[in-house]
Each structure stands twice: as structure tokens, then as C-alpha cells.
Computed example of a mutant assay.
Amino acid sequence: MHFWATASDVKIKTCNVLQGDIFFTPSSEMPYDIALSAVAMENMNSVCYSYHIYRFRIFEDIDLQYRAYMFKSSSFYEQANVACEGSGKRYVISLSKFKDLTVYYPSDKKEQHAIATILSDMDNEIAKLEARRNKYKLIKSGMMQKLLTGQIRLVKPLAPIIPLETPDAQIREIPLQTHVVTGHIVNALYQSSGWGRTKLQKTLHLVGYHCQLDFGNDYIRNTAGPDDQAMMNHIDSKFKQYRHVRIEVKKENGKTRYNYIPTAMIDELEQVYETYPQTIRHAVDSLINKIKKMDLACAEIVSTLYAVWNNRIIKGEPISDDLLLEDFYAWSKHKLDFSPDQVLCELNYMRKEEIIPIGWGKYIDKK
């Protein structure tokens, strides 16, 4: 349905809206809503303001952005509240009393602009925080619906969160973001070449160190590279508990192989991941896209090279291709399965794709 509003030429001329005009509410059901203001940030051709509001046109050179804040002080609102009249159902401030209201402002336009910029930045930050809060409320509401209706059941984890034999099992904490980011990784890589528990852990190692995310990890040297079985067991238990990821376990040639497949409930983790700062998500997703093109061998080589390279940076030791290869082959006898040309190829790839460590985190020297 459309409505057409018309106005006479005189009305259009006398009630026009120009950039910098400030409009006020002269009446409201509550006195604290009197004299609320808004500023026209541009000229509006063929537009008339309503008789329900007051227009204040300033002819002094006052910063445009500052005009949006200059009438929002508590002292100005208090004056308006005292000056308005009403019976409890409707309050009104007359034009004559409105003209008697006083506001103070700095005469220096640069100071006006600086004040307005600070207040505007704070408003933007508050808006972002409120948007995040609203998103979390939606996520909580959805989770409550599924939990309280039995769509999700909090079954006892089938795997221990941290093995009892782990020395620091009682004091170690695995952050929530470990579960969230791991779910995102599974959702992105579960169809990639060489997918399974080993590639998942190599990806977690690279993402955690390269994007500087605290996963509560404590890596040790193991055959295939940096290894933290306590963290992986914790992740497995969370996936089984909340059913975001299905874990398939198979026996092949005497070895146990794990496959991680996202379920329809993975969207719950993705919604939480979307609340992370854009800079973090960009860094994580950029690295994941590079790992997606790697097979298991490449992921293992890159993860191990990253670890030995990172160790040298932290310890302040010299770095060269020969030294990195020496550390790579000293990692375990299993590394002899890879030729020097293959390892150098991956090292060059790391430099080309800027998968280069910056010495963040604890170095891995446990065996």
C-alpha cells in the first residue's frame, strides 16, 4: 500500500530540511523523552519536516558531527524536563520555553570535531558489542530449545577429557575456542586429501601457532610431528558429547584410524565462530584454505618444519635451509621417509605462502 503526501510551495519553502538542521521532539508520553534531537546530515530536496517536531537551524560554523551530540548532555535534558508541562499522559514543551533552554559548547571547531569523533567511535563500538550480545542471545536461545526439548542430550563422554596418566591433568585447561575452531576446521577440511586425526592435529598445530590462538596445548615430539594426545582426547570427548562431529573409528592393518565428519549440528559451532573478530577469522580461514590443498604428507612436513623453525626463533638460534633440514631429520627416524628435495619444496612453499613462524608459543622439545 502506498500513500502520497503533498505540500504547498510555501510549506516546502518554509519547512524545508537542510544539512545541519537539528530536529527536536517537543512532546512525549514521558518527560524524559522531551527534546531528543537528531541532525540532518545532508540536504533533502522536496522534503518537509512535520509539525510534530521543532527545527533548529544554526547559522554559526559548528562541526556537523558535533551537532549530533551538543544537545544530548544531561544538563540540557534536565532543563527540558523542568520546562515541559503535562498531566501524566502527555508532556509538551512550548516553543517559547524551548527557546529559553541553554547549551554550552567549545568555540574551537577542531575541538568540536575531536569530541564528536571520540563519541562517534564509542557509539560504533557499543553497537558492535550489542550486535555480538544479540547474536549470543540467539545462540543461547537455540541451545536452550534443543537442550530442554531433548534434541541434544548431555551423555557421558565416551573418551576421557584428559588421560589420568597425564602429569598435569588436574590443572590443565582446554579453552572453549579449541572446540569451536576444531569444529570449524573439520567442517572445512573433512573432504580434503589425507583427512583424519593426524591431519586434523597438524592443522590445529599450524592454526594455533600461526594465528596465535591459545588452544591450551602442550605439544611433544612424536613420529608424525608435534603431538598432544590429551588435547585431542578432550576434543574427541566434546564432539561425542555435543554431537557436532561424528568420529568414525576403523582398524586397518593393525592400526586404528579416526575420521572426523561434521553433522547437521555443526552449524551451532559455526555460529559461535562467526562471533570471533574478523581479523582472526580471516587469518584462520586463509591458512585452512592453504592446508586444504595439502595431502597428509605435505601437512606433516609443513607442521614439523614450522615447529623446528619456531623453536630456533624462540631460542635465538641461526636459521638456514640446511639447519632446518637438519632439525627436521633429527625429529624422528620416520622423517627419513621424505626426500630432501621434497622437504625443501615444502619449505619454499611455506615462504611463498607466508606460513612463517614468528616465535610465538612454547617451543617443542619434549620427547
Rank of each mutant, 00 (worst) to 15 (best):
residue 6 T to I: 06
residue 11 K to S: 14
residue 12 I to Y: 04
residue 16 N to D: 14
residue 18 L to H: 10
residue 18 L to D: 11
residue 21 D to L: 10
residue 21 D to C: 08
residue 25 T to S: 14
residue 25 T to R: 11
residue 26 P to K: 14
residue 27 S to V: 07
residue 28 S to L: 01
residue 32 Y to C: 11
residue 35 A to K: 03
residue 35 A to L: 09
residue 36 L to N: 14
residue 38 A to V: 14
residue 40 A to L: 07
residue 40 A to C: 10
residue 44 M to L: 14
residue 44 M to V: 03
residue 47 V to N: 00
residue 48 C to V: 15
residue 50 S to C: 04
residue 52 H to K: 03
residue 61 D to L: 07
residue 70 M to K: 00
residue 72 K to V: 07
residue 72 K to L: 09
residue 75 S to V: 09
residue 78 E to L: 13
residue 79 Q to L: 12
residue 85 E to D: 05
residue 89 K to P: 00
residue 90 R to E: 09
residue 90 R to H: 03
residue 98 F to P: 08
residue 98 F to C: 07
residue 99 K to M: 11
residue 99 K to G: 00
residue 107 S to E: 11
residue 115 I to T: 09
residue 119 L to M: 02
residue 131 A to V: 05
residue 131 A to E: 13
residue 136 Y to I: 11
residue 139 I to S: 13
residue 148 L to C: 11
residue 149 T to W: 03
residue 149 T to A: 07
residue 154 L to Q: 02
residue 156 K to A: 13
residue 156 K to V: 06
residue 158 L to I: 01
residue 160 P to T: 06
residue 163 P to G: 12
residue 165 E to N: 12
residue 166 T to L: 04
residue 167 P to D: 11
residue 169 A to H: 12
residue 169 A to F: 10
residue 175 P to W: 05
residue 175 P to A: 13
residue 177 Q to E: 14
residue 180 V to S: 00
residue 180 V to K: 00
residue 181 V to A: 02
residue 182 T to C: 04
residue 183 G to L: 03
residue 188 A to C: 10
residue 188 A to L: 05
residue 189 L to Q: 04
residue 193 S to P: 03
residue 194 G to W: 03
residue 196 G to S: 12
residue 200 L to C: 07
residue 206 L to M: 15
residue 209 Y to S: 15
residue 215 F to Q: 08
residue 219 Y to V: 04
residue 221 R to F: 05
residue 223 T to L: 15
residue 223 T to F: 08
residue 227 D to P: 00
residue 229 Q to H: 02
residue 232 M to N: 05
residue 237 S to Y: 00
residue 241 Q to A: 01
residue 242 Y to E: 12
residue 248 E to C: 02
residue 250 K to Q: 06
residue 250 K to P: 00
residue 252 E to K: 05
residue 257 R to D: 05
residue 261 I to T: 05
residue 261 I to F: 01
residue 262 P to C: 05
residue 263 T to V: 04
residue 269 L to M: 15
residue 272 V to C: 10
residue 273 Y to S: 05
residue 276 Y to E: 14
residue 276 Y to W: 13
residue 277 P to Q: 07
residue 278 Q to A: 11
residue 279 T to R: 06
residue 280 I to C: 07
residue 281 R to A: 03
residue 283 A to D: 15
residue 284 V to N: 01
residue 288 I to P: 02
residue 290 K to Q: 10
residue 291 I to F: 05
residue 295 D to R: 03
residue 296 L to M: 11
residue 301 I to L: 07
residue 302 V to E: 08
residue 304 T to E: 08
residue 305 L to T: 09
residue 308 V to K: 06
residue 309 W to I: 11
residue 312 R to M: 12
residue 315 K to G: 01
residue 319 I to E: 08
residue 324 L to I: 10
residue 324 L to E: 12
residue 333 K to V: 14
residue 334 H to Y: 08
residue 334 H to A: 15
residue 338 F to M: 13
residue 344 L to P: 02
residue 345 C to W: 04
residue 347 L to V: 04
residue 350 M to W: 04
residue 351 R to Q: 12
residue 364 I to Y: 02
residue 366 K to F: 08
